[in-house]
Design a protein around this nucleic acid. Sequence first.
DNA 1: GATGAATGAGCGTTCATTCAT
DNA 2: GATGAATGAACGCTCATTCAT
Lengths: 194, 194, 194, 194
Amino acid sequence: MPPSQTIKSEAIRLFALQGYDGTALSEIAKAVGIKTPSLYAHIDSKETLFMELFDDIAREHTEHLRVAIEAAGHSSLEERLFAVIRESCGDYTLSEVKSTFLKRSLFFPPAYMRKEIQGRFLEAEQSLRGLLSSLFEEGVADGTLRSIDVEQLIASFLCLMDGTFIQTHYYGAEEFGKRLPDIWKLYWAGIAAQ
Amino acid sequence: MPPSQTIKSEAIRLFALQGYDGTALSEIAKAVGIKTPSLYAHIDSKETLFMELFDDIAREHTEHLRVAIEAAGHSSLEERLFAVIRESCGDYTLSEVKSTFLKRSLFFPPAYMRKEIQGRFLEAEQSLRGLLSSLFEEGVADGTLRSIDVEQLIASFLCLMDGTFIQTHYYGAEEFGKRLPDIWKLYWAGIAAQ
Amino acid sequence: MPPSQTIKSEAIRLFALQGYDGTALSEIAKAVGIKTPSLYAHIDSKETLFMELFDDIAREHTEHLRVAIEAAGHSSLEERLFAVIRESCGDYTLSEVKSTFLKRSLFFPPAYMRKEIQGRFLEAEQSLRGLLSSLFEEGVADGTLRSIDVEQLIASFLCLMDGTFIQTHYYGAEEFGKRLPDIWKLYWAGIAAQ
Amino acid sequence: MPPSQTIKSEAIRLFALQGYDGTALSEIAKAVGIKTPSLYAHIDSKETLFMELFDDIAREHTEHLRVAIEAAGHSSLEERLFAVIRESCGDYTLSEVKSTFLKRSLFFPPAYMRKEIQGRFLEAEQSLRGLLSSLFEEGVADGTLRSIDVEQLIASFLCLMDGTFIQTHYYGAEEFGKRLPDIWKLYWAGIAAQ
DNA sequence: GATGAATGAGCGTTCATTCAT
DNA sequence: GATGAATGAACGCTCATTCAT
C-alpha cells in the first residue's frame, strides 16, 4: 500500500476511534511507521487531512446509498429500504470504521469545522431525501405502504437510520447485526399496508 | 450562583459542545470569569470534574426515566412510552445541553475513560430494560400490544430512543419536536395491536 | 504542642528529608493538620521559615559542641573528642533529623541563600576550630598526642566529622552507631602518642 | 559539541549545583541556548535525563576507582589507597562537577527516586568493598598494615572517603587539595604497622 | 487563628508545524 | 520522501502568596 493510502486509512481509524481533538499527528505517524514531520510530505495540515477524509467517505457513503436504493427492479421495496439501513450502519459495504468516522464527524464535528461539515452533509441528506421520496411515493402508490404522508415516512426512516447506526456503534456490529432484522420487522410493520 | 455551580454548568456546556479533548480548562475558566489555576480551588482535576459531571447527569437522567415510566396509572401505555422517548431526547425535563453531554460521553467517550463510562452506563441501561420489560409485558398481556417477544420490543424501543436523540441533537430540539409525534405514531403502529 | 512549634518541627523533618526545593508549604501544612494559607499566621514566608530553622539549629548545634568540648576535667581528651564526633553525627544530643537538616543545608543549600548560609557557618566553624585548637595544643603539650602541627590535627578531625555525618545519614544512625567506635579507634591510633 | 552532549553537561552542572528539584528544564535549555520544548528532541523526560546522567557518572566513577585500585604492582599499597581517596573526591580524573553530582544524588536524592538510586549504588559499593577487601587483606598479610579486622579497615576507609568528598565540595578542590596529604598521613599512621 | 477563593509565575510536557539536510 | 532539530502556543497543574471573611 502506498504511504499516502496508509496514512489515510490509519488516520480514519484513529479519528473514528478517538476523535479529531483526541488524535495527535504523532499517533498517526507512529501507526504508519514514520516520523511525524514525514507526514507533511503527504498532507497539508491536520485540518485538511481530516476534511479530505471526510469528503472521500461522505462521497463514498452517498454513492453506496444511491446504489442500494436504485437496486435492480427484482428487489422488493422492503429489501431495498432494509439495504439502505444496513448500509448506513456500516454493516454492508462501507467499512465499520468509515461509518464510525462519518457519523462521529456529523454528530460531533471538531468545533472549527462544524458549519463546513454540516453544510456539506445537508446536500447529501437532501439527495437522500430525494431518493427515498421516490421510493416511498412508489410504495404508497402501489399499495405496498400505508397511505402516509411521504415527509413523515422519510422522517421516521431517517430516525431509524440514526438509531441503528448508534446501536451498531454501541453494541458492536456483530452483536447488533443479530437484532437488526427484528427491529426492521417492527418498523416495517408500522409503515406497511396490512 | 455559587462558583462551584457555575463551573459545573459551564463545564457541561463546553464538554457537550466541544467534547472532553476539545475543551481546555482555560476555556471553562474564562467562561466562569476566573483564571485557570483558580479552578483548582473547586475541582481535583479535569478528569474527575468530567467524571463527576457524568455521574451527576447520568443519575439525574435515570431518575427522570424512572419517573416517566412509573407515571401514575391514569396514563396510558402509549403515553408513558412516549414520555420516555421525549425524556430521552432531552426535550422534556433534562436540559438539552445535559442530554448532549450525556449522549456524547456515551457514544464517543474520551479514550482513556471509555471502559469506566460504559461500565457505569451498562448498569443504568439494565435498570431501564427492567422497567421497560414490565411495561411491555403488561401491554402484551392486556392486548394493547401485538404479541411480540419482549426482547424485540425493547431492542426496537432503545433503537428509536437513540435515533430520536441524535435527531434532536442534529436538527435542534425545536425543529425535531414537531416531527417527533409523527415518528412516534409510525413506531406505535408497528407494535400496537390492531 | 503549640501550632508554631508543630510547624517548626514538621518543617525541619520535611526540609531534612526532601530539601528546600523538594518541600512544598502544602506538605508542611498537611503534616501539621491545617490548610496552607493558615501557615501565614505563623510564618512570614517559606524563605524566612527556613532561615529561622537554620539559625535555631545551628545555634543549638554549636552550643552542644561547646559543651562537649568543655566537659568537666574528669573526662579524658579522647573521651571529649569522641563526644564531639558523636555529637556531630546526630547520635548524641541533637536529634538525627536536625542533624540532617543542618548538614544538608550546609552542603547543598538552596541556591538563593548559599552565601548567607555559608557565611553564617564559617563563624561557627571558626569558633569550633578555636575550641579544638586549645584541646589539641593541650594534648600535644602533655604528651597525649603525637607532636603534630595543630592545624593538621584540626583538618583531619573535621574531615572525620564530615565522614561520620555522611555515613550516619547514609547507613542510618543505628547501624552506623555500631561501626563508629571502631572507626574512632583507628583514627585515635593515628594521632595518639604511642 | 553535539547538542545532546551539551545538554548532558549543562544538566550535570546545574543538577550538581542546584539539585534536581532546584533545577528547571528551562534553565538547562537556556544554558544550552535552545527553547525548553526543544529539549524533548533529545531527552524523554526530566526524570530519565537525571537517571541516565546518574548511571553514566556512577559507572564512570566505579571504573576510575577500579583502575586506581588495580594499578600496576609498582605502586605501593599506600599509594594505591591514597589514589582511591583522591579519585573519590573528584580531584583526580572525574571532574569536580560530576563528583558533586554523584555525591549529591547519593546523599540527598530526589524523593521519588531514592530507592532506585540507593539500590543502584549499593551494588557499586559492594564491588568497591570487595576490591578494598583484597587490598587490606594483602596489607595485613605482608605486615604493611597493623593486624586489624578487615571490616573495620573498610569502614574507616569509606568514612574517610566521604569526609574528603564533603570537604572537597565545601572548601573547593584547590584549597582542600593542599590539606589532603596531611589528612592522609594521619589516617595512614593509624592503620599502618609501626 | 483559620479558611475559601483567588492569582501571577512557573512547572514539565505535548502539539502542529517548519526547515535544512 | 524522510528525518532531526527546533519552535510558539498551549496544555493540565502546582507553587507561594494575598486577602476578605
